[in-house]
């Protein structure tokens, strides 16, 4: 019970991060299926999942052989780079500098592109299969990085994997039911939250790897998340003030 409680932050980070990636992959798979045929799109997706399973098996066993200090440094560095990239984009989107991610627009663009490309007479459509395969592998690699990053070092790979699988299953079930992109998922807020979580885990693991003794042990991660949340919120306000960008509510009310 207590180990599951300890694994809750890892599970939450993996669930939230994976749900964002699953929504992005699902939009492209849906576009490929609707424009070119479901059979090929689903076969491409299945191929992508097999490739991801192979990546997990290969890297999972390789990671087990790395000494813990080096693993902490490597995982911490990867998480920090990964998390800061998400956080940077989320801050710019929240400040109104960069437009919000729009799954409906992506779906429309992908569907138009796929419909306009040449279609073969065979039942097997290589364009649909490859499009779905590429989407599943590329977004899936991000899920693998998140799961390995937040789960490996603290021996929390199982809770992190369960969180990621639950997110993917939930998104797949909702998408199969709706048969359209999940445009109402608050992707920017999720990316913001996950960026904060991944960067905090990155700081923590890298710090442990170079010999930092964090005050309050593992609980320091929560403090790091709070610091990042406050700092990034201040950055959003600062950008809006300095560049005279109105609040998003005002932008939407005007348009």
């Amino acid at each position: 019970m207590s180990s599951w409680m300890q694994g809750a932050p890892q599970m939450a980070a993996a669930f939230l991060g994976s749900s964002v990636e699953a929504v992005e992959a699902m939009t492209i798979v849906l576009a490929a299926g609707a424009a070119r045929g479901w059979r090929s799109a689903l076969m491409g997706s299945a191929g992508g999942l097999v490739t991801l399973a192979a990546i997990v098996v290969v890297f999972g066993s390789a990671l087990a052989a790395i000494p813990i200090d080096y693993l902490q440094i490597a995982v911490g560095t990867a998480l920090l780079l990964f998390g800061i990239r998400w956080l940077r984009k989320a801050v710019l989107r929240s400040a109104g500098v960069v437009a919000l991610h729009d799954e409906s627009a992506i779906y429309a663009t992908q569907t138009n592109t796929l419909q306009s490309s040449e279609r073969s007479a065979a039942r097997w459509d290589a364009v649909a299969a490859l499009t779905a395969y590429k989407a599943v592998v590329l977004e899936g690699v991000e899920v693998v990085v998140i799961v390995i990053g937040v789960g490996t070092v603290g021996n929390m790979i199982l809770p992190a994997s369960i969180g990621a699988l639950a997110a993917c299953a939930l998104v797949a079930a909702v998408a199969a039911f709706l048969r359209r992109p999940l445009a109402r998922v608050p992707e920017n807020a999720l990316k913001y939250g996950v960026g904060i979580m991944l960067t905090s885990f990155g700081w923590f693991w890298f710090g442990e790897g170079i010999g930092i003794r964090w005050p309050y042990g593992d609980a320091a991660i929560l403090g790091l998340m709070l610091v990042l949340f406050v700092a990034s919120a201040l950055m959003v306000r600062c950008i809006r003030r300095l560049h005279a960008i109105p609040d998003r509510e005002h932008i939407e009310a005007r348009s």
């Binding site: 500098v97 919000l100 560049h243």
Partner: peptide, 26 residues
Amino acid sequence: LLENVMRTARTVTRSSPGPSPPSSQP
């Protein structure tokens, strides 16, 4: 991070004033 987002904001707002349309970029 602060330096990077401020620099990006300065570059983007200089080249295109006003809010940008919804993005289809991942």
